[in-house]
Design a binder for these strands. Structure first.
Lengths: 419, 419
DNA sequence: CTGTTAGCGCATTCAT
DNA sequence: ATGAATGCGCTAACAG
């Protein structure tokens, strides 16, 4: 019922081995034979049996991209970029079928004979039903759950995936860290290329081809410095889920800036944790403020809304709110407005990521731009081995402060800060 | 080097077949044996070889979800919902094995010490590195390109995917329609369950398990009726790519409403195409206006921005702009503001989809709500055979008008409409 | 309930 | 340059 290699071989009057060689394009085959085989493939509408092929070759063309939340543009942009790089034959191959007029014609297999620069491996394209050297890049939605992350990794391992890209922050639970780490090592041992994107390198990251980390800390620090420079001192922070690295790094950057300015709980400029209890003097508000002005939530609009309401309740005098990301910032804006406050006159708001909609917010959102597309694309290339990994396998990707309308100096009549 | 079924069998002192049965959980196995096998699996850290398994069983656990643009929340939400349904072992029992005396009590459900809810077939979890009955649901980004859509379909076909979900509008080019249709038929013939979500059923859709179509036309009509009721008559329309069904349906709904109100080019209330050239009288502005007040672009912010600028240039007197979707509406808002106009005082703006950020726009966006999550989840269940298809395999999903702040009556001093 | 026996469809040695 | 074997790792009858 389903047509196999043998059928094609029979039709083309060659052996199955030859058909295989033509299809994989990695072995010399006489042009005439090749034509015949290709024609038989078209006529029979043959489609390679992936599982069989993978089994025999001990490799597959599956590339997995793990994301926390596919509905979040942050991941959509990153994953889409990676997928673009992976989908394209890219380095060395051709894109197939340049020949037959693609506009409206391309009735199908007929007008070939061209097969432009069919160099080596990449050949066939899908228009007629065949598909060749392409990788099947797929994105898997973990929903932020470490268990699902592990499950997907196992599933991918089971498929003998060619590569795996993990995007977004990691969960810091040491048990999960270890589990993920072990799993990645096994994947790497089995020949799967592992790339981290927007996630800090893991301890003993030999298993990983490359880790692309965003400068979350630096970006957050510069953002808060901007607020401080405007004159804000009572700055609320709507953080993400406490256990994620992204959350921690952004929060640390924020606090670094605060402390360097003599605000917050720690020694100026320090980044160490310590000193949780206020010492009662020294020109700072003490650590209690640091805690009081931070609220954790999810990376979504609703959380931003709720957390901001809470922040406003705890400290009605805040003059600025820094959100974990742009989506959260949007929720924060809604909460602020609902309280009858204006942005930025009464309260400044800042986000993180610079997602496409941020520039359209009213007022436009001050945020920190992360080159998501570029990072995703690079991760894709790295996964495909189309780009050489950075030295040490680790690269930090810059974060750029984008000052826009949602931040401004605090009102002059705002309660005078204590210092 | 890699551990196989035989290794596990040897360690557990059983045959490979028994190990297979334990792993698939679809055949009676003595509890003691099962324990032994499971332990061996853990000790050896065994992971099933997917390709080999798929080859032998002639099925795979891969489920593909095709989307136009993964960076667009419209698709992210839909795909994420579908993936959630597919990922969960869920109810409904798994497709194949109702036969083997599983009527009430699954094979050997008796209390195993460990792992709480290890229910019958779905067994093993990922935490330890094993993964069982789960499907690997993956989303594939076509970028709106019919070629890539076909390529992905072929790739999925090659993997013998268990199911495929196509989301979003279809491209209307008859050649591609036919190609897709043919491909879907082949997939279905090979046992792949095909589900359409947010896409109209295709001609001769026997191949498809179910088609979930949004009521784009009705939603668009009600939206425009809302604008007309407010008193608008000069309404600009920023449409999506001309060749997509979603674009056409929304545009048709809009024009239906316009014509029913005696505006636009056709006979009142008609939905037929005809009458492209204005007849010069009859109380309507004629078809030329219909064309003049419509600009096509992509479904993104930038296009919305550019198209709106163009619309404002063509007809400075427009009092309302309807956008193809919310993202486009955001761009439209930016353009309008840049022109020094206020929303909604000078120009009303409306979108479509009701994405999460729309309620946070300022002013909040009037739009048409599509139950994306629900639709995606339903598509996922349909793909898994967990839900019975609607009668005829076709269901239309309602679209609800959401009136918010971005639409208001036109200014009274606006140029008086001619009628 | 469990072991035995055959392939699944293809990529590869080897030969030629 | 091509054909003929061999086996990848697993599942599915079929016995027992």
């Amino acid at each position: 019922m389903t047509v196999t290699l043998a059928d094609v071989a029979a039709r083309a009057r060659v052996s199955a081995a030859t058909v295989s060689r033509v299809l994989n394009g990695n072995y010399p085959v006489a042009e005439a034979t090749r034509e015949r085989v290709l024609r038989a493939v078209d006529e029979l509408d043959y489609v390679l049996n992936g599982p069989a092929s993978s089994l025999a070759a001990a490799t597959s063309d599956l590339v997995g991209i793990l994301v926390d939340d596919i509905a979040d543009p942050f991941f959509g942009i990153t994953a889409g970029a990676a997928q673009t790089e992976i989908g394209e034959p890219g380095a060395g191959g051709d894109a197939g079928w340049a020949g037959a007029g693609s506009g409206s014609g391309r009735t199908g297999p007929s007008g070939r004979a061209t097969s432009s620069g069919r160099t080596g491996a990449s050949g066939r394209t899908g228009a007629s039903g065949r598909a060749g050297g392409e990788k099947l890049s797929v994105v898997c939605n973990t929903g932020g759950s470490p268990e699902r992350e592990l499950t997907y990794l196992t599933l991918l391992q089971r498929q003998r995936a060619a590569a795996v890209i993990l995007t977004g922050g990691a969960v810091e639970d040491p048990v999960h860290q270890a589990a993920i780490s072990a799993k990645l090592t096994k994947l790497a041992d089995a020949g799967t290329r592992v790339v981290l994107c927007g996630r800090p390198p893991l301890a003993g990251g030999e298993a990983v081809v490359a880790a692309l980390a965003f400068d979350n800390r630096g970006g957050a620090r510069r953002l808060t410095e901007h607020l401080l420079a405007l004159g804000h001192t009572r700055i609320g922070y709507v953080a993400g889920p406490a256990e994620r690295t992204t959350t921690r790094h952004r929060l640390e950057g924020h606090r670094d800036a605060m402390r360097a300015a003599g605000l917050g709980g720690g020694p100026g400029g320090g980044l160490g944790g310590g000193e949780r209890d206020g010492d009662g003097l020294g020109g700072t508000r003490g650590a209690c403020d640091e805690e009081r002005l931070t609220v954790h939530g999810l990376y979504d609009r609703r959380s931003g809304y709720a957390a901001t309401l809470e922040l406003l309740r705890r400290e009605p005098e805040v003059t600025a709110i820094v959100a974990a990301n742009d989506t959260v910032a949007l929720g924060a804006c809604a909460a602020i407005r609902e309280r009858g406050l204006r942005i930025p006159e009464d309260v400044s708001v800042a986000g993180f990521d610079d997602l496409p909609f941020s520039v359209d917010a009213v007022p436009a959102l001050t945020t920190v731009r992360l080159p998501l597309y570029e990072a995703g694309a690079r991760a894709g290339r790295l996964a495909m081995g189309k780009e050489t990994p950075p030295p040490g396998g680790i690269a930090t990707i810059g974060a750029e402060l984008m000052v826009r309308g949602s931040t401004a100096p605090p009102r002059v009549d705002a309660a005078t800060p204590e210092r």
